[in-house]
Amino acid sequence: MPTEKELLATCSQVGNLLLNSGAETFRIENTIEHIGKAAQTPIVCYSTLTAIFITINESTDTLFIKPKMGGYDLKKVDAINQLSRDFTQQKINFNQFNQAIKNLDQTVTQTPFTLQVFGAGLVSMAPMLVFKATWTDLFLSFFVGLTAFIFSKKITSYYDFPYISEVIGGFTIGLLASLLVKFNLGDNLYNIIISSLMPLVPGVAITNAIREIIAKEIISGIVRMTYAFFVAGAIAFGVILAIEVCH
């Protein structure tokens, strides 16, 4: 069995990884407490979006972690969930579990950018099927959606200003859609805009916020929902600004 210091260090790494990968706070707490049970050491964990507290019941030691909330990496969340299940079911020992977590922390699981761009284009076409739009608007939404996605991602490498990528993405969509319709290349301005917005919509943040509130993690749920509203507001501001500029 690991020492208390080793167990706390591993649990802190697990919590940091989960939070930076976009996991819900109740998932973080449950995972860490199950790891403690598997290691025959009762652990209590309390997590928010900005801090994680881990303590051992029979000890005065308490570990405080202040991670920086990152983006979303659901592959890592799934990998940690599987590793914790294997550890609790005694399929792997603590040393193997600890080493796997360290390896996962150093692994980059990001999808290639070209595939992300292509996926953004496909997502932009999906609402057009609901609108029963023309083939022209279907193609244009693919083009506008992936172009806005590229601009919103690239701008973050030059400016680390809050919500600037969402504003630029929304502005790009509004500008391109307005120009395409103005020059009679597109048929329906609002169909193109609504469809092209899909890659920028904070769907995971909204889903996690609802899951947090349902799990009675009210504070974390409200914080996530507020973040999602600010993102949506930034996108809408960019779109409205572009439409006003064009008209």
Rank of each mutant, 00 (worst) to 15 (best):
I80Q: 01
Q82S: 15
G121H: 02
G70N: 11
D78P: 02
D105L: 07
D105H: 13
T62M: 15
Q116P: 11
I54D: 01
K68V: 11
Q110E: 14
F113G: 06
D86Y: 01
A79S: 12
A120F: 04
T111L: 14
I80A: 01
Q116K: 13
M125W: 03
A120M: 07
Q116N: 15
L74S: 11
N81K: 05
T111D: 10
Q99H: 14
A100V: 04
A100H: 05
G119R: 01
I56S: 03
E58P: 04
K76S: 05
A79L: 04
T107N: 12
I101Q: 00
P67R: 11
K66W: 06
T111V: 15
L129C: 08
N57D: 09
L83E: 00
Q99G: 04
F118W: 11
V108E: 11
N93M: 00
I54C: 04
K91V: 05
I101G: 00
F113M: 13
L115A: 15
V123W: 05
K76M: 03
V123A: 15
A126I: 15
S59H: 09
P112G: 09
S84Y: 01
V117P: 03
Q90F: 10
K102Q: 14
K68C: 06
V117W: 06
M69R: 15
K75Q: 07
F97R: 01
Q82Y: 12
Q106N: 14
S59I: 09
L83Q: 01
T107F: 10
R85T: 01
S84K: 01
K102V: 10
G71F: 08
D78I: 02
K66T: 10
L122C: 13
T88D: 09
A120E: 04
T62Y: 06
V77C: 05
I101T: 01
P112H: 09
V117G: 06
A100L: 08
A120W: 01
G121L: 04
F118K: 05
T55M: 02
K102I: 13
L83S: 01
L74W: 06
V108P: 03
V130Q: 08
I54V: 12
N103Q: 14
N81P: 05
F131P: 03
K132A: 07
L63V: 08
N103M: 12
T88R: 12
N93T: 02
F53M: 13
K68A: 12
F113K: 13
N81I: 07
Y72K: 10
S59C: 10
S84M: 04
F113Q: 14
K91T: 03
F64M: 13
I92P: 05
D61W: 06
D61H: 13
N93E: 06
N57E: 10
N57Y: 08
G119E: 02
T55P: 00
D105W: 04
Q110S: 12
L122M: 13
S59P: 07
T109R: 15
D61L: 12
P112E: 09
Q96Y: 04
V130A: 11
I56F: 05
D73T: 02
T55R: 06
G119C: 15
R85P: 00
P127D: 07
L122T: 05
Q106A: 14
M69G: 04
S59M: 10
T109A: 09
Q82D: 14
Q110R: 14
M128E: 00
A120H: 04
